[in-house]
């Protein structure tokens, strides 16, 4: 639960967390596993049966090792809050997550940096899923409006035989700043992975997304998907990468990017590499202006061009 000396810090973080769409009550519920990080300290921690959480201090940050026991199916999502309440600084966070055989867990993560100006957040998540495990990790970010945050988030997942991994990253409610999202998953036999990034970049935000799935085991399936909106002078560069390394593997990469504004720049690069002639990979991309037919469909119902654009963007980022 909340470490006593940090109760006031938790309250400040909680307010920002709720603005980010999080539900603070989850951190006070003993039935729900949770981790709360502020700056370079773990200020709240709650383990439940079958879940082992081991925090440790690292240079400029925190490492938390999380393990879900074999066969453990968590009824409630694990709640993770990573915050930084200062204006300047550097924060490193490492999560090592292991799900033992046939375990099932969903993680709901919120990263809140409400007042950060000169700030770098460097996150690394190592995931290991044993045979038949199921894991979803949903990461939503809420930044300050300065646009000066530097964020690097990397995830490397080893998805075991017949295991399922879904990893989503969302940053659509605030300015982005500089963002690098790197997701990578290596799949064993009959494993499934879905990587999905949603970003809205405005002003001079600069976004780089790279999603990579390696279909190493026979019958593995993967989906790497990015939806992005770039407005004003923002830059968004997306690479979706899929490797069909084994027989009967199937993979799809998909990128939707809307660009609107003078000086905006978007790019999409699908990389499909097949190393086995029984592998099947596909890709789909749509980048540039808002689709005219979509716009006119909504305008023929009475929306202005701006309102129609807003609704189309809302769909893409939801």
């Amino acid at each position: 639960m909340i470490v006593k000396d940090f109760e006031r810090e938790f309250e400040a973080l909680a307010r920002a967390y709720e603005r980010a769409g999080g539900d603070v009550s989850k951190f006070l519920d003993k039935r729900i596993a949770s981790v709360i990080i502020s700056g370079d300290r773990v200020i709240g921690l709650n383990g439940v049966e079958g879940v082992v959480l081991k925090p440790s201090k690292i240079e400029s940050g925190v490492q938390v090792d999380m393990e879900i026991g074999a066969g453990v199916v968590l009824e409630h999502p694990v709640h993770v809050c990573t915050g930084f309440l200062e204006k300047k600084g550097y924060q490193r966070v490492i999560f090592n997550i292991t799900l033992r055989r046939n375990a099932k867990a969903i993680f709901t993560a919120h990263c809140v940096f409400p007042w950060a100006e000169e700030f770098t957040h460097d996150a690394l998540m190592n995931v290991r899923l044993e045979e038949g495990a199921w894991m979803e990790y949903h990461d939503e970010h809420m930044h300050s409006e300065t646009g000066s945050i530097n964020l690097i988030t990397r995830s490397i997942a080893d998805v075991g035989m017949g295991a399922f991994f879904r990893n989503t990253f969302t940053l659509v409610k605030t300015r982005v700043g500089k963002l690098k999202v790197f997701m990578e998953a290596s799949l064993k036999e009959k494993a499934i992975a879905e990587l999905f990034t949603k970003v809205k970049a405005t002003k001079d935000d600069d976004v780089e997304v790279r999603e990579t799935i390696k279909l190493d085991g026979e019958g593995a399936r993967g989906l790497a998907k990015t939806n992005a909106v770039a407005l004003d002078r923002a830059k968004v560069s997306v690479v979706n990468e899929m490797y069909g390394n084994s027989p009967n593997t199937r993979g799809h990469v998909e990128c939707v990017e809307i660009a609107k504004g003078d000086g905006v720049e978007v790019s999409a690069l699908p990389i499909l590499i097949v190393k086995n002639d029984l592998s099947e990979l596909t890709h789909e991309a749509s980048i540039g202006r808002v689709n005219v037919k979509q716009l006119q469909t909504l305008m023929a119902k009475g929306l202005t061009e701006e309102e129609a654009t807003e609704l189309i963007i809302k769909g893409i980022l939801t």
Binding site: V256, N291, K293, Q294, T297, K301, L311, I312, K314, G315
Partner: peptide, 14 residues
């Protein structure tokens, strides 16, 4: 037209 991510209810109510 088709709309990525747009729920039917949002579409019908614009």
């Amino acid at each position: 037209a088709r709309f990525t991510g747009l729920k039917l209810k949002d579409y019908l109510t614009l």
